[in-house]
Structures are given as structure tokens and as C-alpha cells.
Amino acid sequence: MAHPNPIPDRLKAARTKAGITQRELGIRIGMEPSSASGRMNHYEKGRHIPDIDTLKRMADELGVPINYFFCENEMTAELACLIASMTEEQQAELIATLKKSQL
């Protein structure tokens, strides 16, 4: 069974949380003002899938890690954001803790 593409829902959730319009996000990542709203709407509706460079610009603008867009549920999406906000040292400690708990 094929899984639905998580990008449209993640994109809309991150944009909504950031409190900006589709048009504004499109313009901020370098789209022409006349087409920004329509292009972003197509991404959020799943009619088109953004290329990796566009996805990276969106992630940077919305303050989420790029892997956020690929998370299939809310819990992994939240974890991706929390992990991205940690220092490398904190991430290393978390990895060590998780590995210990699997023993």
C-alpha cells in the first residue's frame, strides 16, 4: 500500500504556524509575486511536489529542518523539530541515551 505524500500537510502546518500567507512564503523564497500564491497552493494541495532546493528554502524560511516535510505523523514531525533545535552535544547525549535504553 502506497503512503500518501506527507509534504503538502507538513508545508501547510509549518506555514500556518509561522503565520504567513502562501503568497508571502513564495515571495520570501524567490518566486515571482504574480505566481507565488498559485505555486504554493499547488504544493499544499499536492498537485506539484517542490524540488529539493525549493523545499530547503521553504524549510529555512519556516524554521523547520528539511526532514520535517517527510515525517508521516505529528510525533515524528515534532521530534524532528526538537532534535534540530538541539546542540550537537545534546544530540549525541540523546543518541547515547536511546542506545542504552535499547539494550
Rank of each mutant, 00 (worst) to 15 (best):
H3I: 10
I7M: 08
G38S: 13
S85Q: 14
L103M: 08
T16S: 13
K56Y: 15
C81M: 09
E24R: 14
A13Q: 04
M58A: 12
E61Y: 00
L25H: 05
D9T: 05
T16R: 09
L62Y: 01
I83A: 06
N73D: 14
A36W: 04
D60H: 06
G19W: 06
I20S: 04
Q91C: 07
I27T: 11
R47H: 15
Q91N: 12
G46T: 02
L98H: 00
P50T: 02
A80R: 06
Q90G: 02
G38M: 12
M1W: 08
Q102A: 10
P4W: 07
S85W: 03
I7A: 03
M40V: 09
I7F: 03
T21M: 08
C71E: 13
P6Y: 04
C71S: 14
A14H: 03
R39H: 11
E24F: 00
A77P: 05
K45C: 14
E32I: 07
Y68Q: 03
R10I: 01
Q22P: 08
E61K: 07
P33F: 09
T97S: 12
M31I: 01
R23P: 06
P50K: 00
L62V: 02
Q102E: 14
N5C: 11
K45M: 13
T87M: 03
C71V: 00
A96F: 04
N5M: 04
E89C: 01
A80S: 15
I49A: 11
T16E: 10
T21A: 15
I27S: 10
T54Y: 09
P8Q: 07
I29Y: 08
K56P: 00
R47V: 14
Q90C: 01
A14I: 01
K100C: 00
L94P: 01
E72M: 07
P33I: 05
G46V: 04
K12G: 00
G30C: 10
T21R: 10
A59Y: 03
F69R: 00
R39W: 09
N67G: 07
G30D: 04
E24D: 10
Y43Q: 07
K45Q: 15
I52V: 11
R47S: 11
L11N: 01
R57T: 06
Y68W: 08
A96Y: 08
H3A: 13
R28N: 13
P8I: 03
F69V: 00
A96V: 00
A92V: 10
Y68M: 02
K17C: 04
Q22H: 05
Q102F: 02
D53E: 13
A36S: 06
T76W: 02
S101P: 00
A96H: 08
P33Y: 05
K17S: 14
N67D: 12
A92I: 11
A13I: 01
R28K: 14
L55E: 03
G30P: 10
K12H: 09
S35N: 13
C71Y: 01
S101H: 14
L25C: 08
L103G: 14
L82E: 13
R10G: 01
F70M: 10
H48D: 15
L11T: 06
L79S: 02
E89T: 10
M40L: 15
A59P: 10
E24C: 07
P4L: 12
K56D: 12
M31N: 09
E74S: 07
P33N: 07
T54H: 12
A14T: 02
G38A: 15
